[in-house]
Design a protein around this nucleic acid. Structure first.
Lengths: 185, 185
DNA sequence: ACTATACTATACCGTTTTGTCCAGTTTCGC
DNA sequence: GCGAAACTGGACAAAACGGTATAGTATAGT
């Protein structure tokens, strides 16, 4: 049952990192919560940074996949994808587990651009931008690269504002702005 | 010269907090860098949190004032203020000392909404939104409250992206999006 | 000159941090 | 059942953490 312990470690770590931050979460807390021995952690991940990177990697895959599928089911037609994305964001923000984007949090705590954690955050945002770009392509936008970049910035802004204020109308207001951007082509 | 030491402490702390984060910056580091004794810190601020709050308060006032004046001088006419704000942002992002918004960083590290540090960050963002609202009023926007909210989200998004990627064209691209939002009224 | 205040230097406190070591136990594939 | 691998629990280390205590110095205003 190697996978069980390893996965439990990553899941627990990710949950605590999201809630309390990376530096503020000690490994002893993670170990107690996960019910795993300290050596198991270090055998699997080597260092705390290794655990952070593993957690971010898993989160990257899962979150991008969730955004894509959730948006696809919410969008009736392919050209509605970009706007439906904001409904997906709304669902994300409304969840109990929402404490802001863990990658933005990571880039704030490790803002040296050479830091592996920062690079992992950057990689995730690349995947997010790529997803938005796909939605823009599917929507048949005249200048999909530019639109995607604009929508992406709006998404980041909405995420930050939602975490900062807790305002539940944030995603809806961002969606309104997105509609204007899309209508202008 | 009580003011000198106290101010030096706040300035040094703010600089280090911006660069390395709040939890990652130890008190001893601040003291050494500022050339101040430990008891001086605790006599003035009581706790590390007190120092953090003092630093954020000073930064709030200075940064809002700088944004306002810099934007005013860059804007030719009153109706150009909202767009000129993005030129100001560009100058901010291009500076050597730019390591992201210290208030977003703070809200990431202290994301409990009851935490005094989080509340200080929230207060600053309220002042920022108010500034944008003033610019929207001055520009004679038809629905200034809505426009201000949209521009504000774009500003936060641009700030995050600039810190994450280091891309120097971020503010310019956000400005393009802002132009579209403004043209649509 | 006297006094209040600001400040310094240093030692110290208890806690927490990441990470290591090790001997023993559970669990799994064969 | 056997051997290998995964896992455990606890002791331990060295450093860093925020914060306190103390004793003494510098610098003001009056």
């Amino acid at each position: 049952m190697s996978l069980k312990k390893k996965d439990r470690l990553v899941d627990t770590a990710l949950r605590l990192f999201c809630r309390y931050g990376y530096r503020a979460t000690g490994i002893d807390t993670i170990l107690t919560e996960a019910g795993v021995a300290k050596m198991t952690l270090y055998n699997h991940f080597g260092t705390k940074e290794g655990l952070i990177l593993a957690a971010l990697e898993k989160r990257d895959e899962e979150h991008i996949a969730w955004l894509a599928s959730e948006t696809q089911t919410r969008a009736g037609a392919p050209e509605d994808g970009l706007l439906a994305l904001f409904d997906t964001l709304d669902a994300w923000f409304a969840g109990d587990e929402f404490h802001g984007c863990p990658f933005l949090k990571a880039s704030g705590e490790f803002d040296d651009h050479n830091d592996p954690v920062h690079r992992a955050a950057l990689a995730h945002k690349g995947h997010l931008l790529a997803l938005i770009r796909e939605l823009a392509d599917a929507a048949g936008a005249p200048d999909p690269a530019r639109i995607a970049g604009e929508i992406y910035m709006l998404v980041e802004g909405a995420t930050v504002v939602a975490q900062l204020t807790g305002d539940r109308s944030t995603a809806a207001r961002a969606k309104q702005a997105a509609e204007v951007l899309l209508a202008a082509g």
